[in-house]
Write a protein that binds this DNA or RNA. Structure first.
Length: 423
DNA sequence: TCTGGGGTCCTAGGACCC
DNA sequence: TCTGGGGTCCTAGGACCC
């Protein structure tokens, strides 16, 4: 049996832990740069604020209904997420952390009824220990657990836990749920299915295998079997190292100046390189992209990406910044107003697998020295805060930086702010 | 004025090999 | 007139997820 644990309105719930005033009030959380709505409390959903809507377009509703607004506080959310996941380990050692606010658990020796009871216990304990409300869905496969969880969230009668195995009339249930509710079926697949008169889960599990495979790929076919209770997607307990790492941001203002762009790219490269080292990897490839504001239709548009192969795979911030800037020089065109830029590492391998290049002067000793330096920098920055030590290329002013005007305190990770809350 | 960021997997088609 | 068959690897782009 699988259970999917999903934190309710996660970002909002994190804010509410430290700010009881927000209870039962409409609350929204904005994306980076205070751009779009990325999380809503139930009260905010009832005001019909759409998920993903641009902040500037909903000012009227915000003012009229006194909606509380916050910038994304990822330091806080990551830390709360870590605590929730750790707490879940008390209930099953078999856990897959699926996203910042979701985890699959698997259970081997439970009887149906007792498992439902057990999940209620999990829900209550997580609320008590950490203060985050959760919903849990139970099923024979991950797809069914995910579906159950959606049902648990939508019907208050279930009080946050739904076990699809206990459903008395599964056929009736499957006839009521539309295909787009299925995990893995998006807009495009929904359109294809509807065109073939497949509208509900019931239709889906009775559709032709061959047609499904040709039109919705092997994944579409696996989903069908998962819905019928055959496991096709296993629990991935061990987090795999990332195969690609991206760091990108929209700017707080338009940027035309090459030097500012260079600063931004150097910053993003630093962030991505830190992630690379954290998983003991190196990259063979680096891409840099820049783009103007696609929403400003009346302004000249330009977007481009340049990829380069590195002579030796590396995770050295200095080397990566050097190549990132070479990439930037290839695509930079003056006189455009840039709104977004980013850095991408795509061919990532374990650092144990570095191969030396015949034509490079570096040897293994050089590489070990570089690695030691990076380790020291990472440790200092971890202890004393981001960018305590940084490359000068990152710049000192960073006028292009994103805006986070509504940021709450880093209640759990910043010592000064912890003192503040306790006082 | 103001529109996010970071991932994964799959497939088709091209290049290349014998 | 008539131009094979089978395989691998790589990449770009699409679709999906949170």
């Amino acid at each position: 049996m699988f259970a999917l644990v999903d934190c309710n309105n996660f970002y909002v719930s994190c804010e509410r832990i430290f700010n009881p005033k927000l209870k039962n009030k409409p609350v929204i959380i904005l994306s980076n740069n205070d751009g779009c709505v990325v999380a809503l409390s139930n009260e905010a959903k009832q005001l019909n604020i759409p998920f993903g809507s641009p902040f500037f377009k909903i000012q009227d509703i915000i003012k009229k209904h006194n909606v509380f607004v916050f910038s994304s506080n990822y330091e806080l959310y990551s830390d709360i997420s870590f605590r929730v996941m750790n707490a879940l380990l008390n209930f099953s050692p078999d856990i897959e952390i699926y996203s910042i606010d979701e985890a699959f658990l698997s259970f081997k020796k439970f009887k149906q009824n007792s498992l439902t009871q057990y999940c209620f216990e999990i829900k209550n304990k997580i609320k008590k220990w950490i203060g985050v409300p959760i919903s849990i869905g139970i099923g024979k496969t991950k797809t069914l657990a995910k579906l159950s969880c959606e049902i648990a969230k939508k019907n208050p009668d279930y009080k946050g836990v739904f076990n699809i195995n206990e459903c008395e009339n599964i056929e009736k249930l499957f006839k009521e749920i539309k295909v787009e509710e299925i995990w893995g079926i998006g807009q495009k697949q929904k359109d294809k299915l509807n065109k073939r008169n497949i509208y509900t889960i019931f239709d889906y599990i009775n559709s032709d295998d061959n047609w499904l495979k040709i039109n919705l790929t092997i994944i579409g076919l696996k989903i069908k079997y998962e819905l019928k209770g055959d496991i096709c997607f296993e629990l991935n307990e061990i987090p795999q190292p990332k195969k690609s790492i991206v760091s990108s941001r929209s700017f707080g203002k338009d940027v035309s100046n090459f030097f500012e762009l260079k600063e931004a790219i150097s910053n993003y490269t630093t962030i991505a390189a830190e992630k690379l080292r954290a998983q003991n990897s190196v990259t063979k490839n680096i891409s840099v992209f820049i783009a103007t504001n696609r929403f400003k239709k009346d302004e000249p548009q330009y977007a481009n990406i340049y990829t380069t192969k590195l002579p030796i795979a590396t995770a050295n911030t200095g080397t990566l910044i050097k190549y990132a800037i070479i990439c930037l020089e290839k695509i930079f065109k003056p006189d455009y107003k840039y709104k977004k830029a980013g850095v991408m590492f795509t061919e990532i391998i374990s650092k144990e697998k570095i191969e030396l290049n015949l034509f490079e002067e570096k040897n293994f000793n050089d590489i070990l020295k570089e690695e030691k330096l990076m380790n020291v920098i990472d440790k200092i920055n971890e202890k004393y805060g981001n960018n305590t030590i940084k490359y000068l290329a990152l710049g000192l002013n960073n006028l292009w930086k994103m805006q986070r005007n509504q940021l709450s305190k880093r209640y759990t990770t910043n010592w000064n702010e912890i003192l503040e809350i306790n006082c």
